[in-house]
Computed example of a mutant assay.
Amino acid sequence: MKKQPDILIIGGGIMGCATALHLKKNGMAPAIIEQFSIGSGASGVNAGTLSLQIKRVALMPYAIAGHHLWEQAGRLVGFQKTGGITLAFTEQEATLLHQRMQKKIQAGAPINFLTNKQIKKIEPKLTDKVVAASYCAEDGFANASLTGHYYRTLLKQANISVYESCQVEKITYQANQYQLTTNQGEFSAPRLLMATGAWLKNTAALLNIDLPVNARVNTVSVTERAPRLVSQVIGHATGLLTLKQKKNGTVLIGGGWQGKGQPVNGSGQVNMQTLIPNLQLAQYALPPLNQLRIVRSWTGYEANVPDFYPLAGAINGFENLFILGCVRGGYTIGPYISQLMGEFILQRETALPLFDPNRFLQSSSKE
């Protein structure tokens, strides 16, 4: 007979899984409740970019630490440290690039600026129409499609209970226990962590908590295989492009261009009105892409709140109720902020501060 869990974690993405692993390592017995399958949400369908150049300044220490954790995972997640170049094509973009990167350099990111001669030496197939560029040797990417397999393996090795295709229908709190009613029966534990990404608003609403969570519908595309065109991760000063070529020759193109849909209605849909300019920007940066066919485009939901900082901490008015999510750049930051969340749940001092979810709540109630 399995031991009753010390904490129920709703959500089997990076944040739910990494927090569970940290808690188990430190003596707790977590159980994960996942509505679909492990790593099937944003954690598994994003572009896998691990670039310090596209992280917000205040989140840079979290991104650097998260990047190191992905590097430690290595080949298990297809990690590659390639270096990354961010391009500007106009004087206005160049000014924006320098302003943003200087702040990130001050925050600890190892970024420097390149001349056109240096760019051509590193990436000869990039466009000649570059006005300015920044470079970070630490940038790279992982294979997001391996996320689910990676965490499922670690969870199994740690003997953590995982319930997939498990839909939470009701949450109540009584006798110091959180009771979850699901399509697979009842679960209870004295602690509850909600880490459901774009579904966080709906999950919190089961306890009458109104979180201002919105969902972006980010689009990613992949080309057919091609000879080596580019070795670095390529970005744009506006943040509207990420581009990298994988070992098999396919080129992965992203940049946060928006599709259509809402999490409550199922998978998102690609929007041709945003897909086309995304691909045009990629082709402008790397002209040989004009010769390649797009094999597939897809979307993934990314949660955010009005200030675009994470929700990470305890909810006032409830005993042992925790929230973790809404992290821009969550693929990079996820493993580390999850460790911090684990330390917080264990009532230990965290190495870096968390992000109080109560900043958006007028009041919390158990009623």
Rank of each mutant, 00 (worst) to 15 (best):
A237G: 09
G74Q: 08
Q245P: 03
L21F: 06
G254L: 04
L281C: 07
K244T: 13
P310S: 00
I33A: 07
N278Y: 01
A303K: 10
L21H: 06
M1P: 09
T299M: 03
A282F: 05
G140R: 02
L97I: 05
V77I: 14
T238G: 13
V130E: 08
A303M: 09
M101G: 01
F187H: 05
N304E: 15
V162I: 15
F187M: 05
Y135S: 10
G12L: 09
V230A: 11
I33W: 00
A20I: 00
L281S: 04
Q258P: 01
G185C: 02
N271C: 11
G108H: 00
K117Q: 15
P287F: 05
T250K: 13
E91L: 12
D128T: 10
I9N: 04
T223D: 12
K117T: 13
K104H: 05
I315V: 14
Q174R: 13
R359N: 03
R216P: 00
A312D: 04
A351H: 06
Q106T: 11
L321P: 05
L206Q: 11
L321S: 07
I315C: 02
A282N: 02
G108C: 01
S297N: 04
T181H: 14
Q99N: 15
L154K: 13
L97R: 03
D210C: 09
S51N: 10
E138Y: 11
E224Q: 14
P306R: 09
S134Y: 03
E186T: 14
H67I: 01
S165P: 00
V77N: 05
P263F: 01
L243F: 03
S221D: 10
L200F: 01
A18W: 00
S51R: 12
S297F: 01
R191L: 12
M194P: 00
Y336R: 09
S297A: 11
Q102R: 13
V131K: 15
G330T: 02
C17I: 08
T115E: 15
Q283L: 08
P61R: 07
G334C: 03
N214C: 10
R348P: 01
G255M: 10
D307P: 06
E319S: 12
K260L: 15
E169L: 15
N183M: 04
T274E: 11
L211K: 01
F36Q: 15
A205I: 02
L289Q: 04
W70R: 07
Q102D: 14
G254S: 12
Y284K: 13
I323G: 04
A109D: 06
P124Y: 10
N278Q: 15
L321D: 05
A133Y: 02
P310G: 02
P190M: 07
A109K: 08
Q339R: 08
P227A: 10
N159H: 15
G255S: 11
S37P: 03
A237C: 08
